[in-house]
């Protein structure tokens, strides 16, 4: 019996967004608000996840699909323990490592410093960092750019380096949020292999991507989210992907009979 790694139990996540307008934005109106002891009108609640439940097991690669704003990234951040649940719970075996496109570490610092600090923050010893450093830089393929501050990187290079850092350690749970989407074909191949390796190391991988081909290549299960709820979930990856495409008004994917 495979061990469950992630149990999501009727999860609800609510964001509180500040500054959503509604206030005139003058000192006088702010003062009036305080006098009347009103809450800030600009606080708005966004109910991003509305009762999601599922179990992911050791060795699973779970794809999460859905339209923009359907709660995919929120779900991943809740699994990583970075967002508290409003209701329900997320249970995990160990900590999840989240990789996202906008998860810049320290923009002012060089790629090299980011690699070292990122690895140290994940709890590696200095010796481990020294040992893995060349492999991480090589895997990311940023080359000489490693000595430049990360704000000088292209989007693709930045996300490649971040993926390389986060995947340097074998995590029990790796959460990848569109990080591969910006890589080139060569990098996609490499990261595909790395995800397979991580799965083989008895971990669980979650993948959020709009590129459905990527989901089909990497995942053995898929969850389709819509407005914070699960529409379909299961291991019939092509079936659910097609249903999702159909609901979005697209055509089913044309698949080659045999994939390499």
């Amino acid at each position: 019996m495979a061990k469950p790694m992630v149990v999501v139990d009727d999860l609800h996540v609510v964001y509180r967004v500040y500054g959503g307008g509604g206030d005139k934005g003058t000192a006088a109106s702010s003062l009036m608000r305080l006098m009347r002891k009103q809450r800030r009108p600009s606080i708005r609640e966004v109910h991003a996840i509305r009762g999601v439940s599922f179990v992911a097991y050791r060795g699973d690669a779970v794809g999460v699909i859905g339209r923009n704003g359907s709660g995919k990234s929120t779900l991943l951040r809740a699994i990583a323990g970075l967002l508290p649940a409003e209701q329900g719970a997320v249970y995990t075996d160990g900590h999840g490592a989240l990789l996202g496109v906008n998860a810049a570490l320290l923009d002012d610092l060089t790629g090299e410093k980011n690699v070292v600090l990122g690895c140290l923050a994940m709890g590696m010893s200095r010796q481990e960092v020294r040992d893995r450093y060349p492999k991480i830089v090589e895997f990311s393929g940023v080359g000489d750019f490693v000595n430049l501050p990360m704000r000088a990187y292209s989007t693709g290079m930045g996300s490649r380096l971040r993926f390389a850092i986060a995947s340097a350690k074998s995590h029990d749970i790796l959460l990848v949020d569109e990080a591969l989407a910006t890589g080139d074909a060569e990098f996609r191949q490499k990261s595909h292999r790395r995800i397979d390796e991580l799965r083989a190391e008895a971990g669980t991988v979650f993948l959020v991507a709009h590129n459905l081909g990527e989901i089909e290549e990497n995942c053995n299960r898929v969850i389709w989210l819509e407005k914070g709820k699960i529409v379909q979930a299961g291991d019939d990856v092509p079936g659910i992907v097609d249903a999702y495409l159909e609901a979005s008004g697209g055509q089913p994917r044309v698949r080659e009979p045999a994939k390499i």
């Binding site: 951040r77 990583a80 323990g81 970075l82 900590h95 999840g96 490592a97 989240l98 990789l99 996202g100 906008n102 998860a103 810049a104 570490l105 320290l106 923009d107 990122g118 923050a121 994940m122 709890g123 971040r162 986060a166």
Partner: peptide
């Protein structure tokens, strides 16, 4: 960004 990306 650091807080949101890594667990420490």
């Amino acid at each position: 960004p650091l807080i949101r990306a890594l667990h420490f």
